[in-house]
């Protein structure tokens, strides 16, 4: 287990919509070892716990790490006020990321809402062999669609209200994809009900699936045991920890 703690400069800040921000940090030591699906743990002035945020994009040449987050409460609101040139206190890279299969293998990457950012590195890995399905409540909050397209992946945008892309849930799009061509792996991140529905479909189709889970955290490194998640292996149930054993888990090992 190797990770760093440091204060890293914000080299780029974008606002993607009313509530979602896109920050790029200069932190070469982290990007050198960061992997798709890992996360960083960010300190916020005035708050006692750090905030876990997935790694969205890794630029190894420049040593740039991109994170995309939504303002949910007071901590992410305070983070969103930081500016280019400011320092962000980050621990990372943390956790276990997605298993990236050999080139030529096919992947379906699915992101729901603010679960889409970690799918970018997955899409970059598989390129044209990837189909990215992203789902949002409505078109105005859809993010990262151009980034996904730039990877060469096929993109399918779903919105609950049909205001952009196709109307409906990601699971409907997934079902259609599975009917035409079976991928080697499915990677998914988003709300629990969505993940549960995806895992059900994938299981029936016999496709290996990895899901990225969320849980409230304190240490972020596996020491405090607060981020528990019920898992099962070899028929035996146990409490795993999202920060260290995850956030990415084999779907068949998660007790939903």
């Amino acid at each position: 287990m190797n990770y760093f703690q440091g204060k890293y400069k914000i080299v780029k800040k974008l606002k993607l919509n009313d509530t979602v921000y896109d920050f790029t940090l200069s932190c070469k030591e982290i990007t050198d070892i960061a992997l798709a699906g890992q996360f960083v743990h960010i300190a916020v002035d005035g708050f006692s716990l750090r905030r876990p945020i997935s790694i969205c994009e890794i630029n190894r040449e420049k040593g740039w790490l991109r994170i995309v987050f939504e303002v949910r409460g007071k901590g992410t609101e305070a983070l969103s006020k930081l500016c280019e040139g400011d320092l962000m206190d980050v621990i990372g890279p943390l956790g276990k990321g997605f298993d990236l299969l050999k080139p030529g293998k096919k992947c379906i990457a699915i992101g729901g809402g603010i679960g889409t950012p970690p799918m970018l590195e997955v899409a970059k890995h598989y390129g044209a062999n990837c189909t990215v399905i992203s789902g949002f409540r409505t078109g105005s909050i859809a993010i990262l669609q151009e980034d996904f397209a730039d990877t060469g992946a096929k993109t399918i945008l779903c919105t609950d209200d049909g205001s952009a892309g196709r109307k409906g849930f990601v699971t409907e799009a997934l079902e259609e994809c599975l009917n035409s061509e079976k991928p080697d792996i499915i990677c998914a991140c988003g709300p629990m009900p969505m993940l549960k529905a995806i895992v059900e479909l994938a299981k029936n189709a016999g496709i290996r699936t990895q899901v990225s889970l969320e849980q409230r955290m304190a240490c972020g490194v596996g020491a405090c045991l607060v981020c528990a998640c019920r898992c099962v292996k070899d028929g035996e149930e146990f409490m795993a920890h999202v920060c260290k054993d995850g956030p990415v888990f084999e779907a068949e090992e998660v007790v939903f």
């Binding site: 708050f47 006692s48 716990l49 901590g75 849980q215 409230r216 955290m217 304190a218 405090c224 045991l225 607060v226 981020c227 528990a228 998640c229 019920r230 146990f238 409490m239």
Partner: peptide, 20 residues
């Protein structure tokens, strides 16, 4: 011991609750 179900942590002003 498996401990309690999650969430097991809640932030508080200048502190935290845990129920590991």
């Amino acid at each position: 011991r498996d401990g309690n179900p999650a969430p097991r942590v809640a932030e508080t002003p200048s502190g935290m609750l845990n129920s590991v």
